Simulated assay, not measured.
Amino acid sequence: MTTTLAWLLFALGVGHIVYAFAKFRVPLLEGLSAGVVGQFGSPEVRRTAFWFTMFGPLLMLSGQVALHAAHAGDLGLFRLVGAYLLAISVVGVVALPKSPFVVGLLISSSIVAASYGFI
């Protein structure tokens, strides 16, 4: 179960990037074609596209750390990854109740629960 949850977290990161390129294709391409450096501060849609896209690799990294912890049997590290994501997801759900942060909330709470042996 722990490796499945870790892979779900990694997949969430991949999905974040794929969705970013689908939803923010135009602003991302405009920023790239404008030379990248200093091109994602404004307009607001470029800034949003940048941060939304950059969150994907961070989720993938978290998934890789969780996967390593699962394979090594390091439930403390596994729990830590889940706890960080849980905190981020709670803030995200509070700030944006009708957002995909609910998915992070489900995955992270499952990771924490699995680290304690509840699932």
Rank of each mutant, 00 (worst) to 15 (best):
H71N: 15
F21P: 09
S89N: 08
M54Y: 02
P27G: 13
T53W: 00
I111E: 00
T53M: 09
G117L: 04
H16P: 05
A113C: 14
G15P: 03
A114G: 03
R79A: 14
V45A: 09
G15N: 02
L86R: 02
V81K: 02
K98V: 08
R46K: 05
G92I: 05
D74K: 07
S62F: 13
L105F: 04
Y84L: 15
S108V: 03
F55L: 13
L5H: 03
S109I: 05
S33R: 15
G56C: 00
L77K: 04
I107V: 13
L59N: 02
V91K: 09
I119E: 09
V45K: 07
V93M: 08
M60E: 06
F24K: 05
V90A: 06
G56Y: 00
I107M: 01
A95R: 04
L105Y: 04
L61K: 06
R47F: 11
H68A: 12
S109H: 03
I17R: 07
M54Q: 04
M60S: 07
G104A: 10
T4C: 06
K98H: 10
F52H: 10
S109Y: 04
H71A: 15
V26Q: 15
G76K: 07
Q64G: 02
T4D: 11
H71V: 12
G92K: 11
T4L: 13
S42E: 13
T48C: 05
A114E: 05
G92R: 12
V103Q: 02
L32T: 13
S62Q: 07
R25P: 03
P57W: 00
F78M: 07
P27N: 14
G41L: 13
V90T: 01
G56Q: 00
V26W: 12
I17E: 11
L59A: 09
Q64W: 05
V112F: 06
D74M: 06
V91P: 00
G41R: 13
V26M: 14
L80W: 14
V26R: 15
L85N: 02
E30F: 08
G38N: 10
L75R: 09
S110Y: 00
S42N: 11
V26C: 12
S110L: 06
A34N: 06
V36W: 10
T3I: 13
L86D: 00
V26L: 14
L8V: 08
F24P: 03
F24Q: 06
H68I: 09
L96W: 08
Q39E: 15
G92S: 08
V26N: 15
S110P: 05
S109T: 10
